[in-house]
Design a protein around this nucleic acid. Structure first.
Lengths: 241, 241
DNA sequence: GTCTATAACGAGATAGAC
DNA sequence: GTCTATCTCGTTATAGAC
């Protein structure tokens, strides 16, 4: 903040702090992969880094804060991958953009199975994620919303069914997530979002073992049908069937 | 096995063994809820039962065997709930039977969150489920297959899309799971199966917090659309749209 | 001010001798 | 089966180096 003469020294300090923080998180991620989030231990992390456990408290006030940092990093890493893939598909039709994002989610999950388990797997006993994780966690969802929003730029669409008992919830959902989208579209989006991670999780957690062999085309087809379920069509519009 | 004269004593012995086994599993389930599967420890279970850890090995040769028993029990408990709900819906249309089973899965999951996490959540580090879990794990899937099979008793249906690149996989899948169903139906079934657990998992693991409020009608609607996705129609047939 | 190290606490797991 | 000595853990207090 202060642009005083000590900026070099401060910069070095800050740089060192960033480096040590990164090293702590790297070691923690290795431990995550080996023993799972439930057994993540500050002492083991410190041991791996040749530090003493109390020194870690300069960087993370508690074990749970370290966990939170790992969770936010994982969400952001996934979000970045998805956004990068989406950027490359600019100009393509909405279905293509949708499936591109979905496949990026799957690819990231297969490359980072333990971080995926951390954010989309079983909750860690005794740990409750704070609200600070919400923005990072929302990135993939916002990306999907954006794709549907672009497709539905004009009026006149609909075609998605919505039972009367669900209308209040759909309207609340739309008001929260995408006020410019029709309620039934917002509802279909949330459904597709959960189903996307159902597909990824089943593959990653072994439920497809001995069931689905050729997983990439299977996944591509499944998410293409998810895109149809939210009203996207190949040629750009969202005017239902 | 041997129907000798000691059958009464043997029966008592066997009964005691069953009771102790059940007590061990109950205590293990409590520990599962408190600390998670990764920290399941034979010693802690023994302590809770006032036994000594070495005594447990007469009932479960290892911690992993105890875990396997809990997994099989969980799958069977879920399968029984789903089958019981399905039995009550006998005579109803296929969509109604489908949603009944799906809602039974959700209800069981909400009532047994830790057991759900054990079977459908993150894998337990260092543990690999043996093939003996497969029959129990298949029960819900078989139930869903049966519903679709009943609906598709006649010929002429189709309407489900299937890209050429997926045809071999779909045929292999159908041959394995339901040789009497068309390949595209088998494929759609597996997709819907994964998506069903995506919906349940998202609710249970907190992803719907601050997003979906009125979850029961949301879920009902979502799985109704899943039923349509496998070709089921309210009036009994499976003749596509 | 910023960091690391020593030491300690209370609680719990673990291994082995008996 | 029991007991004990030795580990682990998260966390804090404190003292000293830069």
């Amino acid at each position: 903040m202060s642009p005083a003469q000590g900026s070099t020294a401060q910069g070095a300090r800050a740089r060192a702090r960033i480096e040590v923080t990164a090293a702590i998180k790297d070691a923690a991620r290795r431990q995550l992969a080996a023993d799972g989030a439930a057994k993540l231990s500050l002492r083991a992390v410190a041991r791996e880094l040749g530090m003493v456990s109390s020194a870690l408290y300069r960087y993370f006030p508690s074990r749970d804060d370290l966990l939170t940092a790992l969770i936010i990093d994982a969400y952001n890493s996934l979000g970045e991958s998805a956004e990068a893939a989406h950027a490359k598909a600019e100009g393509a039709g909405p279905v293509r953009r949708w499936t591109t994002v979905c496949e990026a989610v799957r690819t990231w999950a297969l490359a980072h199975p333990h971080e995926y388990a951390l954010i989309y797997g079983s909750p860690v006993p005794g740990y409750s994620a704070p609200d600070t994780t919400v923005p990072a966690a929302a990135r993939v969802g916002l990306l999907l919303i954006g794709i549907v929003r672009d497709a539905h730029h004009g009026p006149g669409l609909g075609e998605l069914p919505l039972p009367a008992e669900l209308r209040p919830e759909a309207e609340r959902l739309a008001a929260d997530l995408a006020p410019d989208l029709p309620p039934e579209t917002a509802m279909a989006l949330v459904t597709a979002w959960a189903q996307l991670f159902g597909l990824v999780g089943f593959e990653l957690f072994g439920q497809f073992n001995r069931v689905v062999e050729d997983r990439e085309p299977f996944f591509r087809h499944a998410v293409t049908r998810l895109a149809q379920g939210v009203g996207l069509t190949e040629d750009g519009g969202g005017s239902g069937s």
